[in-house]
Write a protein that binds this DNA or RNA. Structure first.
Ligand SMILES: NC(=O)c1ccc[n+]([C@@H]2O[C@H](COP(=O)([O-])OP(=O)(O)OC[C@H]3O[C@@H](n4cnc5c(N)ncnc54)[C@H](O)[C@@H]3O)[C@@H](O)[C@H]2O)c1
Ligand SMILES: NC(=O)c1ccc[n+]([C@@H]2O[C@H](COP(=O)([O-])OP(=O)(O)OC[C@H]3O[C@@H](n4cnc5c(N)ncnc54)[C@H](O)[C@@H]3O)[C@@H](O)[C@H]2O)c1
Lengths: 204, 204
DNA sequence: TTATGCTTGTGAATGTGAACACAAGCACGA
DNA sequence: TCGTGCTTGTGTTCACATTCACAAGCATAA
């Protein structure tokens, strides 16, 4: 096959497939067809088949996809087969919720360090980590962390990002309602909850 | 003009424009061109012009868009010109962060009720609200609330949604990693933070 | 060994959204 | 009053994503 470029939208759906296959595994189902998977995920079957086919032929014709080995393949495509360490910047309300959320580990994420600039927070324990002073941010480089979750106020976000660039961070999940300037080598995903909520009244 | 259908992607960007225009207003700028707005938002100018033009001709040629009146127009398009009441279901870690977050009010949202099923939480104050027992969920209908923010565990989400349908809720912001079955009249936006984070390692 | 039924993998077609390029047109100054 | 410069609004083109439709092909059973 000669797939030149894998659509971004396909990448966005891959973690969704990974979660679905993981759940199927705990349900002791050892095979799933694109039809049944599509029902679970509210997608169309050809979408799933095409998405997976960008990375190889994982299924068996007449049967479907083998749950266990396909899960392993997706995990390895997404580089989630190895534990991915992430740093959390901002131990506020949202930051604390994230630090204490067990759901990241099912994707193989490990929140390995937390930073804040509020003296009263530094040294306290949030989740399993002790909050470090933001001035120690170069720990991120020393600990070989390449992902960051940004939960600081919007007006502090860009200055933190500039520091993260120096720490060799490659990917940022940004929860502040703002647009970050980063080098091309860095990938940013911004989620603005208020903005998402803002679309809903339009439809009613 | 004969615009038959307004793209969903345009609707998704409208709250972004609203926030930008609101900020410009506090900066006492009374006019902005699509070029400068595009720089701020990391979009291309024609995108902004086309998006806004779906709803009318708000700008002045040679000058740009009048900040104050365009903000008002967008607010009214999104139905954010009137206070939108929302109910929060699930006063856990994420729910509490949301309840205490002041950023929703700039869009005109008001979290008017909070529900949980954990006895120890019922009656306590979270943000400005007292947590109500989930069995009182019909309050939502009585208070004329049409929006809900769902921050309960994934396995409880569908059962809560079924109740919300009976309360005449029209829109849901779902933070659980699951796919909700709702009547066609209801709009759901699901945000799965772990899934978004899950895409990042792929790009590095 | 061969027929049967089902599901995959994939080129081609369709649909949707982004970007371009330029005519239209307002403001401002001469 | 008229020309100049700048930016909007939009028909059209282009790029990307989804869906279709079917040949390819494995498993199972006769
Ligand atoms: N809480 C929500 O529901 C919610 C919803 C949508 C968006 N957000 C966004 O998420 C971000 C965090 O929200 P929150 O509610 O947790 O706010 P918060 O104020 O509770 O927490 C922010 C934390 O960041 C720390 N901080 C500030 N500047 C810093 C810096 N330069 N370096 C390191 N740490 C710094 C603060 O000390 C604080 O602990 C904000 O940008 C907010 O707009 C939050
Ligand atoms: N915390 C995070 O960072 C995070 C990240 C991604 C997704 N999520 C998702 O958000 C949701 C909430 O997460 P959380 O961290 O706040 O969990 P949490 O356990 O802290 O809070 C959940 C709350 O919901 C309440 N609840 C449970 N069943 C209920 C029911 N039937 N009716 C009413 N209330 C009920 C619980 O009593 C609890 O207070 C979960 O689905 C989680 O997967 C959370």
């Amino acid at each position: 096959m000669k797939y030149h470029k894998i659509p971004d939208e396909t990448i966005r759906r891959m973690p969704m497939y990974l979660r679905a296959f993981s759940m199927l595994k705990t349900e002791h189902q050892d095979t799933i067809s694109s039809i049944h998977l599509a029902e679970r995920l509210h997608l169309k079957p050809p979408q799933i088949r095409k998405d997976l086919s960008y990375f190889g032929a994982f299924g068996t014709r007449g049967i479907g996809y083998p749950v266990s080995s396909t899960a392993k393949q997706i995990r390895s495509i997404l580089k989630l087969n190895i534990t991915q360490k992430a740093a959390l910047i901002g131990a506020g309300r949202l930051g604390a919720a994230i630090a204490e959320y067990p759901g990241f580990s099912m994707f193989g994420f490990d929140i390995a360090a937390i930073f804040d600039n509020e003296p009263s927070k530094i040294g306290t324990k949030v989740g399993k980590n002790v909050v470090e002073d933001i001035s120690k941010i170069s720990m991120i480089r020393d600990l070989d962390i390449h992902l960051a979750i940004l939960a600081v106020p919007a007006d502090a976000a860009q200055s933190v990002v500039d520091m993260l660039v120096g720490c060799h961070v490659k990917g940022i999940l940004n929860l502040s309602p703002c647009y970050l300037v980063v080098p091309r080598s860095m990938k940013v995903v911004t989620i603005d909850l208020a903005m998402e909520l803002g679309t809903l009244p339009y439809y009613m």
